[in-house]
Amino acid sequence: MLKWTSAVVASVLLCGASPAFAGPWGNVDCSQAPAPVCDLGVGNNERPHEAWDTGRPSSTDQSSSDAEDPYVGCSYKPVDYQAPDGQPQEPGGWFMVLCSPDGKDPLSHGPVWVPSGGVRPTLSPEQVAEMARNRLLLPSVTISASPADEQLVSLPTWLWLSGGWEEVSASASVRGVSVTAVAKPMSVTWSMGDGGSVTCAGPGTPFAPGHRDPRSASPDCGYTYRTSSAGQGTDAYKVTVTVTWAVTWAGAGQGGTFPNLTTSASSAFRVAESQGIATG
């Protein structure tokens, strides 16, 4: 059982001994040596959707059960469909375009009319942009904080990301239509576990041991606890970090935006009571 005292608590590392520790007021990288009091959650670095690659093309004839598109990895499935304004007079058939086995991928659409022996309809720039978005690989979030030991009530805590704040892009091309999607980190919200939170416009400034007063506040991303974490699960606050990404696309003389994406990670901060700060 953790015992809290009214004096500054002796050094008990959140993340164990690691190269990131540099004395009582140094840095701690909570992804380098996870421990019961430094439980780092991995950010979401998976693609929002995975394209279904069905391989090489086959016939576009309506009798084909799975006519594959060589350009986008989507398949054409024949369907019975009666157009509201009447059936086309030319030979051909109606197809659903399926870009995942279950047809739930955002690129799936239809029905579309495909003339017999004709060229399958190409995708619009917006649909190609969706492909590019699906290829975005967002980086995992890495949490860092100072003090390196337990946080202290009434002492400013410096917060920053040492990973997970870099712009990423991905491209897709279909029949001469090339589009690039870009994901740019816009803000990071820290939920501090005590009911409080702080939103920062950037990744935060790392604390520089020996160059800053440990009682000073971060210039751009920090928090001050007012109550200790004694009595919480593992006697620590669960801290959750969420990065919000703005996603845009451009290509084929057009451009647009997608709904924001997010990545997240979590850690545990112990917060102790103190009546004074020993600096010497």
Rank of each mutant, 00 (worst) to 15 (best):
M1Y: 08
M1A: 10
W4N: 12
W4L: 14
S6Y: 04
S6W: 04
A7T: 11
A10S: 14
S11M: 09
V12G: 13
L13C: 03
L14F: 04
L14Q: 14
A17K: 10
S18H: 05
P19Q: 12
A22E: 15
P24S: 09
N27D: 11
C30I: 15
S31H: 13
S31F: 01
P34S: 06
P34N: 13
E46P: 00
R47E: 10
R47S: 14
P48I: 03
E50N: 03
D53Q: 01
D53C: 00
T54C: 13
R56Q: 14
P57E: 03
P57A: 05
S63F: 09
S65T: 15
E68W: 05
Y71Q: 07
V72T: 15
V72Q: 06
G73W: 10
S75P: 02
V79K: 08
Q82I: 10
P84R: 00
D85M: 06
G86E: 12
G86W: 08
P91T: 09
P91M: 05
V97S: 09
L98H: 12
D102L: 05
P106Y: 01
L107C: 09
H109D: 07
W113L: 13
V114T: 06
V114K: 10
P115D: 02
G117S: 08
V119L: 14
R120W: 04
R133D: 07
L137M: 10
P139F: 02
V141E: 05
S144N: 14
A145H: 13
P147M: 07
P147N: 08
A148S: 15
E150S: 13
E150Y: 15
L152V: 08
L155W: 06
W160D: 09
L161E: 01
S162R: 11
S162A: 12
G164L: 01
V168N: 10
S169M: 01
S169Q: 14
A170S: 13
A170I: 05
S171H: 00
S171D: 07
G176K: 04
V177M: 02
T180V: 11
T180S: 07
A181K: 06
P185G: 05
V188S: 07
T189P: 06
T189K: 15
M192N: 14
G195N: 00
S197L: 02
A201D: 11
P203V: 07
P203R: 03
G204D: 00
T205W: 06
P209W: 08
H211V: 04
A217F: 02
D220H: 08
D220F: 00
C221Y: 03
C221F: 12
T224R: 13
Y225K: 05
R226H: 12
G233V: 06
G233L: 09
V239Q: 11
T240A: 08
T244L: 01
T244D: 14
W245V: 13
V247I: 12
T248G: 03
W249T: 10
A250V: 03
A252W: 12
G256H: 10
F258H: 11
L261S: 11
T262P: 06
T262F: 06
S264E: 11
A265V: 13
S267I: 05
F269R: 07
V271A: 02
E273I: 11
E273V: 12
S274T: 12
Q275N: 11
T279W: 03
G280F: 02
